[in-house]
């Protein structure tokens, strides 16, 4: 049985409210909160970036599992905000975690789904016997152009997942749905991403998430009734709510994973942090549907069954508790934290 043997989360302490951003651009905050379902977003500290958050999440995952660092045979860091364009974040993480030198390692980029892509790599490597444990981390300090709609949601956070045998949550199956769909991109050397506005909806997010989820259920012979929880990529709160409706999941099955309301879209970390929110409360034999989405575009779907092992697994501090530890920034300090002013 192969699956998630441990997980760790990291959310920076700082937040900016939708109201504060709307104040700068003369927009109506209530309308924005209504349309996005997002109230505030997380902002990294001045000295935090994708690598530092990945290390913090990775350390928590190691600590909770008591797996000796040197048993980690692979590290993948998925992000679209790697601090270096050339020079892997994952090597920094591996060094800080003390995993030694004999490990497989690469940075991944697939917009918001690089973290789940890394999980699939780790799963395959464990299953093939190449490694005993693999760690995949989704970590992002998402960029957004001042004044762009993305500014209300582009958050920061990280989630590390360790894949191995004897898991707290078994990965029963995983499948991906991929196409060339330019709904959101960032050209080389450009500081901020561009997007296709409403084009990011139906042909991109919904088509990929729904197709991957349906294919997974078909492969496993499951219907939505077989899942106790579902977590979808969450660029805002509305998209996952709507896709849950399309697939037949009620609000109660997604609520525990809806971190986006409080911390915004954490990109590569978003669906994994949502999964962590659910694993924090899930009971043995409950089943979780995880579907990520990365623009460009693709979705990775997972059927995850919680095992008895979760009962003896330390789940504190829970991710929703971490969300509560926060300090609000005004817009000027926000710009400083995002290194837009130095």
């Amino acid at each position: 049985m192969i699956g998630i043997v441990s997980y760790g989360t990291y959310i920076p302490r700082f937040r900016i409210k939708v109201e504060e951003i709307a104040r700068i651009w003369g927009e109506n905050p209530e309308a924005i909160k209504n349309s996005l379902g997002v109230f505030e977003k997380s902002v990294p500290d001045l000295d935090e970036d994708t690598a530092t958050m990945a290390v913090e999440a990775g350390r928590e995952a190691l600590q909770r599992s008591n797996i000796p660092p040197e048993k980690i045979g692979a590290i993948f860091v998925g992000s679209e905000s790697h601090p270096y364009a050339v020079k892997p974040t994952a090597t920094i993480v591996g060094e800080a975690l003390g995993v030694g030198n004999y490990y497989y390692c690469a940075d991944l980029e697939f917009a918001c789904k690089a973290g789940t892509a890394g999980m699939q790599f780790c799963y395959a490597m464990v299953r093939s016997g190449m490694i005993e444990y693999g760690m995949s981390i989704g970590s992002d300090t998402a960029q957004s152009k001042p004044g762009d709609a993305l500014e209300y949601t582009a958050g920061a956070g990280a989630c590390a997942i360790i894949i191995g045998k004897d898991p707290i949550a078994e990965i029963e199956a995983t499948v991906s749905y991929t196409s060339d769909t330019p709904d959101f991109w960032r050209r080389d050397l450009q500081p901020y991403p561009s997007h296709g506005g409403r084009f990011t909806g139906a042909p991109a997010y919904f088509r990929h998430v729904v197709s991957a989820a349906k294919k997974l259920m078909e492969i496993c012979g499951y219907s939505e009734k077989d899942f106790d929880y579902a977590v979808f990529h969450q660029p805002n709160a509305k998209f996952p709510q709507r896709v849950a409706g399309i697939l037949g999941f009620g609000e109660e099955k997604i609520a525990d994973g809806m971190l986006v309301r409080a911390i915004g879209n954490t990109y590569s970390a978003a669906s994994l942090l949502g999964l962590a929110g659910i694993l924090d409360v899930a009971k043995p034999d409950q089943r979780i549907l995880l579907v990520s989405f990365g623009s460009g575009a693709g979705s990775d779907a997972f059927a995850i069954r919680v095992t008895e092992k979760i009962l003896s697994y330390p789940r504190n501090t829970k991710v929703w508790e971490k969300v509560k530890n926060r300090v609000y920034l005004d817009y000027a300090l926000y710009l400083k934290h995002k290194r837009m002013i130095k």
Binding site: E48, T52, K87
Partner: peptide
């Protein structure tokens, strides 16, 4: 302890963690 950036060698140099 936490893992953080201490600085960087200008805009083009390495980052000191």
């Amino acid at each position: 302890k936490v893992f953080r950036r201490y600085g960087e060698d200008g805009d083009e140099g390495i980052i000191y963690y």
